[in-house]
Design a protein around this nucleic acid. Structure first.
Length: 119
RNA sequence: GCUGCAGGUCGCCUUAUCGCUGUCCCGGAUUCGGGAGAGAGGAAAGUCCGGACACCAUAGCACAACAUAGCGGGUAACGCCCGUCAUUCUAUUUAGUUUUUCUAAAUAGGAGCGGACCAGUGCAACAGAAAGCAAGUACAGUUCGGCUGUAGUGAAAUCGGUAAACUCUAUGUGGUGAAAUGUUAUGUAAACCAAGGCUUGAGGGUUGUGCGCCCAAUCUUGGAGGGUAAACAGAUUGAGGUUUUUGGAAACAAAAAUCCUAGAUAAAUGAUAAGGCGUUUGAUGAAUUUCAAACGACAGAAUCCGGCUUACAGACCUGCUUUUUAU
């Protein structure tokens, strides 16, 4: 089951435009620099997760892609913190609000901390 | 060996574990599980030219506007590429000159906004009366007309220069851009679309202008929107790559053999660990010897091709060149 293993494939990705819109309009948010997450309870089997990096802070496409990969990896390795703790499922958008590159270790720590506090 | 220039090739590697996106095979037969194999670039970038493809009379016609500009060739096409002539720059050699300078010729390497001033309009430092259509110095001639010649200024005085001046000539250019466009499924109404009929053509739309064209209201018939930015096609086999042969001075073309090499869509191609490779720094030392640390250029496909431009640590190859050593 993809909810238990260390996977993050397309069935768990946030793709619906409507859901993203409602997430930004009425979702809750948690912040721990340099990460901001917005989340909302949804009635599905799996979480629905997206990542985002502002073009304003990182002009180069290479930089943005690198950070998005770090964020996805951080979710993949830490998603058990949600699945093991609660039966609720969430739509989550992980947003990078920093202005420079950070080591993956730091990003993973911050994302793990935020996922721990979602409810 | 070293210095510099030009052109070309490459542009981190290996293993393990955990993942991501397609493809194929097996089991299941909707979801799913297992296995095999594939998965960013020379610029994928800028979006500056040229095409393929698709749709749209808001697409047509005329003027305007814009682009290109020796000659020959290549190409699907080009503003690109190859060759060549003239021009111009640099270097060397030779000749002329007492020498520097300068001039001429030859050789080598580069550069580029290279059509036309026998249509019209404009512009021109200094000198000069005057750089074009007005004025005018001296002398001489004279058909007595500022008509002709000489002198004088200047590169140039009705002889010309200038089109990186307007302009003219030749050739070319419609717009939009894969979120194009097509197909399929479900299917309430007055909103949307298509076809047809009737009336009015006011007002509006288009690229600057004119013509043309389109849009409106009402009736009839048929189909539809949302859910759903859905799914599939377009979409990756192509002006394709590699090798050989032939033709050609080259760009390039032809033939044969062989290969299939990303296809995502809130957008895959990654993360971690260990080792190696390279660069830099520090220590060590007879020795890039040994050790340690840091770093790994520019940059991420998005319909697809051909170019151009710009960015780029480092490595290698070829040619020319500077200097040194040996023979």
């Amino acid at each position: 089951m993809s909810s238990q293993n260390l996977t993050f494939n397309s069935s768990e990705k946030l793709k619906s435009r409507k859901l993203i819109q409602s997430l930004f309009e009425s979702g809750q948010s948690l912040k721990k620099y340099p990460i901001l997450i917005r989340f909302q309870k949804i009635e599905t089997e799996l979480n629905s997760v997206g990542v985002s990096v502002s073009k304003r802070n990182f002009k180069s496409a290479v930089d943005r892609i690198r950070i998005k990969r770090q964020l996805r990896e951080a979710y993949r390795l830490n998603k058990h913190k949600i699945y093991n703790r609660t039966d609720s499922r969430f739509a989550i958008m992980i947003i990078f609000i920093g202005r420079k590159h950070l080591p993956s270790e730091t990003i993973h720590e911050q994302v793990a901390h935020l996922l721990q506090n979602i409810e």
